[in-house]
Design a protein around this nucleic acid. Structure first.
Length: 154
DNA sequence: GCCAACGTTGGC
DNA sequence: GCCAACGTTGGC
């Protein structure tokens, strides 16, 4: 199994929104970065687990865990002129952008904040904590995963 | 609201 | 292919 971290702004869509979604599942649309797109398209597999990270939030941090339930397929919001994620460069017969479906697994008993993660031994190389890191879909190692889950008490 | 870091665009 | 300008991300 592989591990990932997904960023979302909770004012737009937070972990609670995922839990309240039908079947606790949603499509992860709106990723408009090629490196993140490649991860969604090529690397994320059914059953993989993801941290759900709240960015631009108070506090910023990891709110819970979700699971990949559908592997990469075209992000159809890019085809819709009326959608805020519309991208005229992406065509239905040659889609530029991809998405996966994720399902809520469990909320952390408390948000594990970015500030807290920064001091933790073993997380020094976590992508999230690298200077200037902006990737919205990023890999997490099994070791990092275990450390964070232990911190959260799950 | 500020601003540093990053990715993309487009002129040359 | 270089690089300046621009737009976006995201912490604070």
């Amino acid at each position: 199994m592989n591990y990932w971290l997904l960023k979302s702004e909770p004012e737009m869509f937070g972990y609670r929104d995922l839990e309240k979604s039908p079947k606790k599942t949603t499509y992860w649309d709106g990723v408009r970065n090629y490196q993140a797109r490649n991860t969604l398209r090529d690397l994320m597999k059914k059953g993989d687990r993801c941290f759900f990270y709240h960015s631009n939030a108070d506090p910023t941090g990891i709110a819970g865990i979700c699971e990949v339930v559908k592997e990469g397929y075209p992000d159809f919001t890019a085809f819709d002129e009326t959608h805020e994620h519309y991208d005229p460069k992406s065509k239905a017969d040659a889609p530029t952008w991809m998405m996966v479906d994720v399902k809520a697994v469990r909320a952390f008993p408390r948000v594990i904040t970015l500030a807290e993660l920064k001091g933790v031994k073993g997380l020094e190389k976590m992508v999230l904590l690298q200077r200037g890191s902006r990737l919205s879909v990023q890999p997490v190692t099994a070791r990092e995963w275990d450390i964070v889950c232990k911190l959260a008490g799950v």
